[in-house]
Design a protein around this nucleic acid. Sequence first.
DNA 1: TGTAAAACGGAACGGAGTTCCGTATCGTTG
DNA 2: CAACGATACGGAACTCCGTTCCGTTTTACA
Lengths: 196, 196
Amino acid sequence: MNDEGKSPGSSARSNRKDARRNQQALLDAAAAVFVASGVDAPVRDIAAKAGVGVATIYRHFPTRADLVVAVYRHQIDACAEAGPTLLAAGPTPYAALGKWADLFVDFLVTKHGLAAAMQGDSTGFETLHALFLDRLLPVCAHLVEAADASGEIRSGIDAYHLMRGIGNLCVGAETDPRYDARHMVALLIAGLRHPT
Amino acid sequence: MNDEGKSPGSSARSNRKDARRNQQALLDAAAAVFVASGVDAPVRDIAAKAGVGVATIYRHFPTRADLVVAVYRHQIDACAEAGPTLLAAGPTPYAALGKWADLFVDFLVTKHGLAAAMQGDSTGFETLHALFLDRLLPVCAHLVEAADASGEIRSGIDAYHLMRGIGNLCVGAETDPRYDARHMVALLIAGLRHPT
DNA sequence: TGTAAAACGGAACGGAGTTCCGTATCGTTG
DNA sequence: CAACGATACGGAACTCCGTTCCGTTTTACA
């Protein structure tokens, strides 16, 4: 799908010293600016914080989504790896699914506007959406299948729908103290069970 | 609640003929542009469609939210009035709540980007959020209370949370054919029931 | 050390929201 | 019916932001 051969995301590192240094500076700056102003902070702010020109951002991270995933890659990976772990540890697959959802929610809620950005509304965030999905959808699907096989949830639940739903429920959670995304996600997960 | 005395939304009409005519032209134009390009369509597009200058928009509708609520006022009212009707008609309060949620979802999903705009992410849409809430939150609260009193749902459900949750689940529903907001909302409603 | 490729920085471009100001229109009054 | 003051109008102008372009600098390698 992507022409990985030249993807400048974070895996294909240049052999030039300054390029590597700038890439790291950008990642650090972006991480700082994201927590301060959200993931849709102005490009110029990030460039200024990193002490580079704006073009350098586009050279290293062609789309904003590339930068976001590069910044949060570790946490996305951690979330992905927690799936099988929870499944092995939890009392039941359904319990593991619930705990995994909590992890995912915590991740989304603590990043300003990440949940909103993930829902490919208008800007070029479809890539972000896709990258999250590539990494996390299989994990979620695995959990759902296990819970399904154990007979704990009603059948016909689609992992994609569930991930979208959880992500959606986290939109705006950090800007509205009256809203508790975790609670809503818990209700959604409860709704997965067989109807009485 | 609002200082209706000078509110330029739609109730305080000017005594000047051209002002009224332009306001109506703007409402018509906005309705057309919203369905064509979503509720975040460029201001200039709406102004052009209405045959007025951009400043005229700001004079009549200071914030975008004012324009949006003016355009959809009828449907918001219809949704609000459906609450008591469904409660009286439905077999149980919980069933009425489910049907009302479906109505709300249909309303949100068929308006491009309305659900996204309602979640006060960054732009000046807090007003939109507030106006929706003013009108619909009491209705939702009434339904929730009735369902609670009938013992059909677990207690501790907050109407505000429920409305936010439903609204959030509708974000992006019209741009992603793989995503079915109605289904997710149905699951959320199912999650309101007492745990087995 | 010389050279070519790679990367850089900041100016420049275009699109969108918002404001400003000179002009036109409307309702009223003499 | 004409003049006047207030109200509303239109579009240019300003700002902010994303994106691209191009002349210059840095780097790696021979």
